Simulated assay, not measured.
Amino acid sequence: MKTLSPYALGATLYMPATREDLLDVVFRNKLPELRSLVVCLEDAVADIDVATALSNLDNLLAAIHQRGGRPADGPLLFVRPRDSEMAAVLNEWTLIAHVNGFVVPKLSMRNLDAWEQAMTNPDLLLMPTLETHEVYNPGAMVELGQALKANLNHRIIALRIGGNDLMGCLGLRRNPATTLYSTPMSYVIPMLAGVMGSQGFALTAPVFEQLATPHLLKQELELDIAHGLVGKTAIHPSQINIIQDALRVSLEDLNCAKLIVNDMTPAVFKHNNAMCESATHYKWATNILERAKWQGVKQAEVTGSEQPIRLAEAGR
């Protein structure tokens, strides 16, 4: 099974499986900047449209197959089944080999066994979504993390934080004038970053549902990155470049990371008026280098160009 870096996700755009332009996005005729796509059969599809959505997904996979597979430079492709029963059906589709994996909605200890039994295809990577009331309980998250590591760890690219559903558990909705960190998510996100992050899982940030306040999206992204989140869900194409620009690494952080992982660097040294300790900061440095590989470096600091350099593509 091919492994994927969670930093390759970037902005992950959700599109209903009923959309007619999915093939254009997969083959980069539309949204060529997109790094990852989720074809949604769950919340984005009404009950009466499920059959149509499944037929449309089947047609999409057949069209991909007819073209000889997805393009190497196209977005990563995931499918979000409606439930474990639907996942079991999709798991057996021959052409499901043309997707990278499944996004698992509303995962908890109560339904983990059902999902495990449904997703037996070892080539399908998984992105479980944490979006049920159990997420507010750190003990439950420790237990879920341990269970995931026991059986599915090698298939999980990242855990997704479902901010809207988690707010819905409390009967709340985001204030359009503030970031998610001015809500109870200011407890949940740091807790998950600690509990799940310390178990080795990468986490992606919740959707920003307000389209008229890109400045708030940028503020929220700064906080997402400060908490170690590796990507963010997008609900509209206008958010893609904003998210991916924020995920680029600063030249200062890149140079510092290179020094920290260098075997010839002293154990403790000063860089840009900050103490750096190779043993303590080594994991941070490797994460910075991996993020730079996939998301690029803030080019404005180097050449004034608005185009990023993605180190993962530098040798192509």
Rank of each mutant, 00 (worst) to 15 (best):
L60G: 04
T178E: 15
L61A: 04
L216W: 08
V297D: 13
E20P: 03
M275T: 11
N121A: 09
Y14L: 14
S108K: 00
T280I: 13
N137A: 13
K30L: 15
G163D: 05
L23R: 02
L61C: 06
R82M: 06
L203M: 06
D224K: 08
L223M: 14
A150D: 05
P32K: 06
N29P: 00
G200F: 02
G10H: 05
D123M: 10
K106T: 11
H215G: 01
N91V: 04
D21V: 15
L221M: 15
A63T: 01
I243N: 09
M275N: 07
L221C: 15
A292D: 10
E220A: 07
L90K: 01
T183D: 13
D58G: 01
K218Y: 02
E222W: 00
L107P: 11
G228Q: 02
S5G: 05
A62R: 11
L311Y: 14
T183E: 13
G194H: 15
L221K: 09
R174C: 09
K106M: 14
V142G: 01
G162D: 04
C40S: 14
N56K: 15
P75A: 03
V195P: 14
T52Q: 12
V89S: 12
D253A: 15
I235E: 03
C169G: 00
T213V: 12
R110Q: 15
R110M: 11
N91R: 08
A292H: 12
L247V: 06
A150T: 00
L23C: 05
H236N: 10
T132I: 13
L124R: 13
G304E: 06
L203G: 03
Y181A: 08
M109P: 04
N287I: 08
D224S: 04
D49T: 00
L223W: 07
K106N: 05
W115S: 05
P6T: 00
F269C: 14
T213I: 12
D113A: 14
V135T: 10
L221E: 02
D224C: 06
W284E: 04
G68D: 01
M109A: 14
E313S: 12
D43A: 08
P71D: 01
A11R: 04
L13M: 09
P237E: 03
G200N: 01
V297L: 15
N100A: 07
T129G: 07
D263M: 12
V104A: 13
E33G: 02
P71L: 00
D43I: 07
A87L: 11
L130I: 08
R80Y: 05
V99W: 11
G10R: 11
K232W: 08
K106L: 13
P176C: 10
C276I: 03
P138K: 05
M191V: 01
R174H: 02
Y14P: 08
K270R: 13
C256S: 10
D49K: 12
Y282E: 12
A312I: 07
A147T: 02
E301S: 07
P81D: 02
A274K: 13
S36M: 07
Y181W: 12
E252P: 00
P206I: 02
A44G: 07
N137K: 09
A212L: 09
L148S: 02
A140F: 11
I157W: 08
T183K: 11
V207I: 11
E252R: 13
G304S: 05
T204Y: 03
K106I: 11
H227I: 01
C40T: 07
D224M: 07
